[in-house]
Design a binder for these strands. Structure first.
Lengths: 225, 225
DNA sequence: TAACAACCTGAGAGTCCGCTGAGAACGGAT
DNA sequence: ATCCGTTCTCAGCGGACTCTCAGGTTGTTA
């Protein structure tokens, strides 16, 4: 169970991230300032640091630079609202290992976290997902139902992957939207129904039984029968 | 699994190199000064040393010279920011076996490491790469599709070689850029698309089926069908 | 069974991504 | 200095993907 430190001064985002990561089985620590982060880092070793670019006092870049200067090589995932190339470069130069622009979909954050942890060999390489006769390999982005290959768009792939990471669980619509579309999703919620439709059509194109079921009033669930 | 010692006082670079080499399956040790390097070398035998030219205290050249004076013949790969011919000569004179100018692409570093290790017969000689009807020999830089020779520029060759070292894996654009163009790549990412285009044109000039496929939103993959 | 809410689906608009041709910049060789 | 191979930049095109919308269907409740 890898330990992750999240450093951000936005309490709401912090809360959301904690919930998401804990849910995925990570052990989560938080800090709301650069100094607090450095303090936490001295207490115990960590497997990953998620660092906001803008922080009160010590900025994320400075925190990263200080860590690296001290010989600490813990992977750093930098968050930023900005998108300029120079920022990206500066971020990576300061010692960050990866970089994510807000707003982002939690699914993407999780993918990057897994990638970073895998890179340093911290823990589990991202295993292929299976449920019933479904097969999904996040590494090769291959998807199959039985022996029939599924051709999925990125959004469809992320959506199905999310279901497969939580099989047999009834997933509320709002949660799916937050996780797959992004924590700040503000569009028409009907888009979820549309994509469920896309997935069902592709997953049942060979006459196979339905796996994604509607739970009226709540959301959807991936299960047999 | 060959053991490699990296000696550099730039923590950032050290961190990057460790990541790259560990990922390739090498066992990595690090040191940030010449003295520390010599200490590490006494502890256990190594297969290769990557040595920065500029080091606090004992310089890279001095470290190499002392090693050779002590009768140690471990291959040394010298890194330097300078490009002057005299430096190169002095570096090689001091006992270095090869020489790499910063900044360099990780793919090039890996190629040199493999070459050095092969020279001393330390471990796996760099075998020719094959996939489907593709053939690529990194030593002779020969490339063929079936019996038809492919005339590739250096960049094209490195790009295809990278694909062939990770067949069937979907490789994210960013990863390809980092590995083939260099860890500090800052140009227009479109260059990757352009080179994919070059490769495809040459690889399919005989009417053969496509092997490098686009994975929209992610990157590319080398695979049949 | 009527009325309402929740969900599904087809169609199409708009956006984004990747492909390509043209040519500029670069560097080594002559 | 000029040439030539190589690398890279740029702009425009076309198509894939995402999302919205409207109308139809299904399920629930009174």
């Amino acid at each position: 169970m890898p330990r992750i430190l999240i450093v951000d001064d936005d309490e709401k985002l912090l809360h959301m991230l904690r919930r998401t990561l804990v849910y995925e089985g990570y052990q989560v620590l938080t800090a709301t300032s650069g100094l607090e982060a450095l303090a936490r880092l001295q207490e115990q070793p960590l497997d990953l640091i998620i660092l906001d670019w803008l922080l009160p006092g010590l900025s994320g870049v400075e925190v990263a630079a200080r860590l690296r200067a001290a010989g600490d090589s813990t992977p750093i995932l930098m968050l930023t609202a900005r998108d300029a190339v120079e920022d990206r470069v500066e971020g990576l130069d300061s010692g960050a290992d990866d970089y994510l622009v807000k707003p982002f979909a939690p699914a993407e954050l999780l993918a990057r976290i897994r990638a970073l942890l895998r890179r340093v060999g911290a823990s589990q390489p991202e295993r292929p997902l299976t449920y019933a006769d479904l097969y999904l390999d996040p590494t090769t982005r291959e998807a199959r139902r039985g022996s029939r290959p599924l051709v999925l768009t990125p959004r469809e792939f992320e959506l199905l992957a999310f279901f497969m990471r939580h099989p047999r669980q009834v997933l509320p619509r709002q949660r799916i939207l937050e996780e797959v579309w992004g924590y700040d999703f503000r569009g028409d919620e009907n888009v979820l129904e549309v994509y469920i439709g896309y997935l069902r059509r592709k997953m049942e194109a060979g006459g196979e039984p339905r796996l994604i079921h509607t739970v009226r009033g709540i959301g959807y669930v991936l299960r047999e029968a």
